[in-house]
Amino acid sequence: MVNQQTIVTRRRSASVAGERVFDFIVYAIAGLIMLIVLYPLLFVLSASFSDPVRVMNGDLWLLPVGFTLDAYKEIFRYDAVWTGYRNTLLYTGVGTIINVTMTTLAAYPLSRRDLPGRRILMFLITFTMFFNGGMIPTYLVVKNLHLVDTMWAMIVPTAIATYNLIVMRTYFQNSIPWELQEASMIDGCTNTRLLLHIILPLSKPIIAVMVLFYAVNQWNAFFNALIYLRDDALYPLQLVLREILIVSQSSYLDSSGSTFGMTEKLLLAESIKYGLIIIASIPVIMMYPFVQKHFVKGVMIGSIKE
């Protein structure tokens, strides 16, 4: 693009002014978009460190006003939040391992062009992306398997995401030379060995993408918890958040041994909500700068059509 642009400016000096205006508009819109996206996020961050009275008076614009850590101190007392955090870590950890294993086990054989029945299997798998039994019949299956009110309800029904399976299969097909696989087969290598010792070491980028896609999904999952979990000892963080942020269950905010009085607590409730948003989003936001290029790669591979 850049040298095309220089050619143009050399050739047509008359249009330079037009180019300038165009550039100006592009940068102005881009700046505005960044502002719109960033402002709410920064506001939450600042509000969580601010004096709730001043936030409610509208004193907060960008930087914290009346800096305080009270909200975070209070959050640290809530057992429900930490139980939720622990559950979410567990579901995300175990869930992601199962997700990636199952997806690999499906994607590799289906990437093999010498697999008899591959087309029909792919059709039956892809079909589920566009038609499925729906919420109620799925719920009944999970219920009849006695998974309701166990941690497995958060993991097993979402063990494979078909979209991810297709992305991984596309990677295996396009990025690993078929000749390599054939050569190993001729050398008498079994498929298990081939997968473990040749394919997987060559597939680190796609495995990273899968781990990230699935982990973020597990971390943010709330709907399955809402329909499958009754026991609040099993609640993942998102469900606890829902109770506090949206349903505004003040009972969750009732923790004995709090150092704050009733009115202070009502005020603090707002700051606590801001603080909770930060605490719940921190793992994802912190890893974001390091992993975002993997995510983007995942989307790109997904866009390759056969």
């Binding site: 996206v37 958040l241 700068p289 995510f295 983007v296």
Partner: peptide, 21 residues
Amino acid sequence: NITYMPHFISVVVIVGMLQLF
């Protein structure tokens, strides 16, 4: 990078933010 970021925030948090704002 900035515009991709909100994608990773959970729906619960988004709706919570809407209620606060």
